[in-house]
Simulated assay, not measured.
Amino acid sequence: MKKYLISLKSYIAIMSSLTFLFITIFSSSLVALILWLFDIRLSLFFSVAIVCVLTTVLSTATFYFGTAYFLRYIERFNKASKRIGDGDFSVRVERNRDKFRGNFIYLHELDELADSTNKTVSELEKMNFLQKDFISNVSHELKTPLSVISGFCEILLDEPDEADRKRYLNLIHAEANALSELCENMLLLSKLDNNTIVPQNDVIRVDEQIRKALSTLIQKHKSEHELELLLNPVSLKTNASMLMQVWINLLDNALKYSKSKICIECFEQNGEIVVRIKDDGEGIEPSKLERIYDKFYQCEESHKKKGSGLGLSIVKRILEHLRGEIEYKNTECGVQACVKFKV
């Protein structure tokens, strides 16, 4: 498919030439007709001079009114930029209907600029929404554990029973750890968003790193899941600490939401290192799969007690830095996360 129906340079050149040719012929014919009708005798010099003056006047008038076509676009950009400057990101620059473009992507450069502007404003609108949503979620996520900690501290002040005091202290400790983990995740996300270059000088065995992450998490969760490990020895040059964070988050999700069995595969295929983590959880609604990487997004209300909704956001951002990709999909018996790296 071609990009432009006609470029602005070609459009202006063609229109200028055709306009000048048409007006020159029209002016010459008009002057000749007037001289013939009124039987006026003029020298060739004066005849040509009159034609030139008339052509100049008519050409100027034609171009003056003809520029209205371009001014309509510029006026649209001007109105849109003012509204964007005022913080209104719902504005869009109006484009001509598709039927004028036919099989071409754009009418011309101004049409392409309008499309690019609309895409930029759409991203700004999305970022503005995410920022507001982020602030709201952070406030909520911080308020909940702080309220719990404050409430149990008040109970402890009046609680004489030693067993109950110990139970409440354990609950306060758990909430404080959750709060600390939330802050660490937010700091990590901020770091990932602001870093453009991540050093990747570590040569690691992916299968061994997955085993290490799994061992740590099994102790943490005191998990009794049935594990099926199909880990082939594969090596990758990457950032070891950041990649470990990927496995920690993905395996942590699998252990949280799986009912009884988790299958982990690691192998090299068609020039790619592939890691698949399958669990037998309840699955994710197809309409929600696209949002699972959004900050603080959780598919079900029941999952809120199991995390803050930042894990997959961190995974996605890390893999963008490490030139990897991830795909979540539902399977017949649960959910599968598939991570790929080019060798």
Results as ranks from 00 to 15, higher is better:
residue 94 E to N: 05
residue 203 V to D: 15
residue 215 S to C: 11
residue 264 I to T: 02
residue 170 N to R: 12
residue 29 S to A: 14
residue 253 N to M: 02
residue 170 N to G: 08
residue 95 R to F: 01
residue 269 Q to P: 10
residue 304 K to E: 07
residue 279 D to T: 06
residue 286 P to Q: 10
residue 140 H to E: 08
residue 92 R to G: 00
residue 194 N to E: 15
residue 64 Y to R: 12
residue 285 E to Q: 12
residue 44 L to R: 11
residue 25 I to T: 09
residue 54 L to Q: 03
residue 100 F to L: 04
residue 301 E to F: 08
residue 298 Q to I: 08
residue 47 S to M: 13
residue 316 K to G: 00
residue 257 Y to T: 05
residue 110 L to G: 03
residue 59 S to C: 13
residue 212 K to F: 15
residue 131 Q to W: 10
residue 197 I to T: 09
residue 343 V to M: 13
residue 97 R to P: 00
residue 99 K to M: 04
residue 263 C to V: 15
residue 203 V to T: 15
residue 131 Q to T: 10
residue 163 A to P: 00
residue 322 L to F: 02
residue 145 P to N: 06
residue 43 S to Y: 05
residue 149 I to H: 08
residue 335 V to G: 02
residue 239 N to W: 01
residue 7 S to A: 09
residue 343 V to D: 09
residue 312 L to N: 00
residue 43 S to H: 08
residue 80 A to R: 01
residue 216 T to I: 15
residue 331 T to P: 04
residue 277 I to Y: 03
residue 202 D to N: 15
residue 103 N to F: 12
residue 269 Q to F: 15
residue 34 I to H: 04
residue 191 K to G: 10
residue 318 I to G: 01
residue 104 F to S: 07
residue 130 L to D: 11
residue 163 A to N: 10
residue 244 M to I: 06
residue 325 E to M: 04
residue 281 G to T: 07
residue 204 I to H: 04
residue 142 L to V: 07
residue 324 G to M: 07
residue 202 D to G: 14
residue 98 D to S: 09
residue 239 N to G: 05
residue 232 N to A: 09
residue 181 E to V: 11
residue 33 L to F: 10
residue 304 K to A: 00
residue 4 Y to R: 05
residue 314 I to E: 03
residue 99 K to P: 01
residue 300 E to H: 10
residue 24 T to M: 14
residue 13 A to S: 13
residue 204 I to E: 07
residue 57 V to K: 14
residue 91 V to L: 08
residue 58 L to F: 04
residue 148 V to W: 05
residue 323 R to W: 09
residue 323 R to D: 09
residue 257 Y to N: 04
residue 35 L to T: 01
residue 336 Q to T: 03
residue 230 L to D: 14
